[in-house]
Computed example of a mutant assay.
Amino acid sequence: MIELKGSNWSINQVRGVVNLLKDSSVFGQVAISSLRLTVLERVHRLSPKLDTQLIVSGWRKVRASLGMVEGYNAPASSLTRSRVKRLHRKGILVVGGYADSPAQWRALARLGVDGVVTPSVREYSEWAR
């Protein structure tokens, strides 16, 4: 996951990132994430095969952008098992936002998310074994 931080990435700035990825061996293994749908639309315009993931703060933004991205990074508080299943049926990846304890990881796992954003990578990888 490569996050394009900030709110105003120009088409030329996005092109630079996309070109770097196209010239790399990881192109098919990464997705671009952003808080801004407009940034992800620019990614799609330049490289339709590159997956995108919108970082959202709540379910309202998910509903408003369905069909425009391949995945969502959503806080656990906005996710339910039925919402995750609904997105999965549409082929959409769901990552549970910022979790840094085994209790939070278990809760996200019960929801059926595809991944977790965590600052505790080592601890999470040990827990996930």
Rank of each mutant, 00 (worst) to 15 (best):
N8I: 04
R45P: 04
S10N: 10
L50Y: 02
V84P: 11
A103M: 10
E70P: 02
N19R: 13
W105R: 02
S101L: 03
G71T: 03
V84Q: 05
S34A: 05
A103N: 09
R122H: 06
V113S: 02
A128E: 08
T38F: 07
V56D: 00
I92E: 09
L108T: 06
R45Y: 11
N12L: 11
A103L: 14
Y124C: 10
L87D: 01
R89F: 07
M1S: 08
R42L: 04
G115R: 01
N19D: 12
A99D: 02
Y72F: 15
L46P: 15
S33C: 14
L93D: 09
V94L: 11
S25Q: 11
V116N: 06
N8A: 15
Q29H: 09
T80F: 00
S10D: 05
I92W: 06
Y72K: 03
S82H: 05
L20W: 07
R110S: 12
V56A: 02
V56H: 08
G96T: 05
S77G: 10
L66H: 04
A109G: 08
V43L: 04
Q13C: 01
A107W: 00
V62G: 01
L4R: 05
E70W: 00
E70T: 12
V84S: 08
K90F: 00
V84R: 07
V69H: 13
I92K: 10
A64M: 12
G58V: 00
P102E: 03
L87H: 04
R110H: 12
R86K: 15
L93K: 11
T52M: 03
R63H: 07
S7L: 05
N8T: 10
K5V: 13
S125N: 08
G58Y: 00
Q104T: 14
T52Q: 04
N73P: 07
G16Y: 09
S25I: 06
L108S: 09
G58Q: 04
E123D: 14
S47L: 06
S10T: 15
V117C: 01
I32N: 09
S34K: 06
R89T: 14
W59D: 02
T80R: 02
L108M: 09
L87Q: 02
Q104C: 04
F27Q: 12
P102I: 00
K22I: 06
L46Y: 12
A109W: 08
A74S: 10
W105Y: 07
V14N: 06
K85Q: 13
H44W: 02
S57W: 11
V30Q: 05
V17F: 08
E126P: 00
N8F: 06
Y72D: 00
I32E: 05
S33A: 14
L40F: 00
A99E: 07
A74G: 01
N73K: 02
P119F: 12
V39K: 01
Y124W: 12
G71C: 08
W9T: 00
V62D: 02
L66P: 11
R81F: 06
Y98Q: 12
G112E: 10
N12M: 07
G6V: 05
K61D: 11
